[in-house]
């Protein structure tokens, strides 16, 4: 067996005339946590569904956990935990019944003990008879993660697991992910949050059904060739329109109260910003390029 948990090449999927995924390659070494990023509708969910056998690829080859992902999806399913974007456990079953169902379907030994341990770990022992549908978003997400971890999979495919979840729950969730990764479990997680992307070993950025950037966060940022200046202070709110169209400025956007101005040509960017330097009350300084700048820049580039 290779050291890659996922090793697929040339993944392609069309729905009618619409190409959802086109030529996607993903190779994730075992035990790593990879982030899967991209705007809505770019093909993240479709890719994940193909990996766990829920969609038949039109083209592509490769393996998941050493099994051919096109023909051996039954074996892959046994070793994979898939968490859907939308809560997809049974809302008219109680928390306990949901876990027991999962345990039965996977034919897990010591079912009762395992379910009890999971309830204990989730802190849901007292609420185990509550219907899953009555849980809040954060609890649903924790239940879903616990349920898809119940059979101790080697690979976790998580589709936007933290969408609509509060910051504390997100933090807890990521701690759990890192703990799993430390135990050798491979995780592919799609997300829209940049802070989550930064917690991944590597990221894959997919846009319009194609992978357009990949690597560690630092690599992706470095490869973009962007330079970012931050402008703060008086009157900065009125500068956006001027700067957006200035030569040398590829990207101008507010992050909080600060205006981020980025460009791939450093000297042109500096020339564009020169008139603003030294204005009273206005502070212009260089800052590290953020992942978000890179993605927005990539999106613009592809669209133009």
């Amino acid at each position: 067996m290779s050291d890659l948990a996922i090793d697929v090449r040339g993944l392609r999927k069309t729905f009618g005339s619409k190409v959802a995924v086109d030529g996607v390659d993903i190779a994730i070494p075992k035990g790593e946590v990879w982030g899967f990023l991209g705007p809505n509708g770019s093909g993240k969910t479709t890719t994940i569904r193909m990996l766990c056998g829920l969609l038949r690829p039109d083209a592509g080859e490769g393996t998941c956990l050493g099994f051919d992902f096109r023909t051996q999806s039954e074996q892959i399913k046994r070793e994979t935990g898939y968490m859907t974007q939308r809560f997809s456990f049974w809302e008219d079953l109680s928390i306990r019944e949901n876990l027991e169902f999962v345990a039965r379907v996977y034919q897990l030994p010591k079912r009762r003990a395992r379910v009890a341990a999971t309830l204990e770990r989730l802190g849901l022992v007292k609420r185990q008879r509550q219907l899953a549908g009555s849980l809040s978003g954060g609890w649903k997400q924790r239940l879903a993660l616990a349920a898809c971890m119940l059979h101790e999979p080697q690979l976790l495919l998580l589709d936007e697991p933290t969408a609509g979840v509060d910051p504390q729950a997100r933090r807890d969730f990521w701690e759990e992910i890192h703990a799993l990764s430390a135990r050798g479990i491979t995780v592919l997680v799609s997300t829209h949050y940049m802070d989550e992307a930064e917690r991944c070993d590597r990221i894959v950025y997919i846009l319009n059904s194609r992978v357009i950037a990949r690597g560690t966060v630092a690599e992706v940022i470095a490869r973009s060739g962007l330079t970012t200046f931050v402008m703060e202070g008086e009157g900065v709110r009125h500068l956006l329109e001027e700067l957006r169209n200035a030569p040398g400025v590829d990207l101008a956007a507010f992050f909080g109260a600060a205006l981020h101005v980025s460009g791939t040509n450093r000297s042109a960017l500096e020339r564009a910003l020169a008139p603003y330097r030294g204005r009273p009350g206005l502070n212009v300084h260089e800052a590290p390029v953020s992942l978000e700048d890179v993605f927005i820049h990539l999106q613009r580039e592809v669209h133009s």
Binding site: R49, C52, G53, L54, E74, K77, R78, T80, Y82, T84, R86, F87, S88, F89, W90, E91, V102, V105, Y106
Partner: peptide, 14 residues
């Protein structure tokens, strides 16, 4: 309709 079908299919039941 409820989206639970996806979950059911992702499990090893035939």
């Amino acid at each position: 309709e409820r989206g639970t079908y996806e979950n059911l299919l992702a499990m090893p039941a035939t």
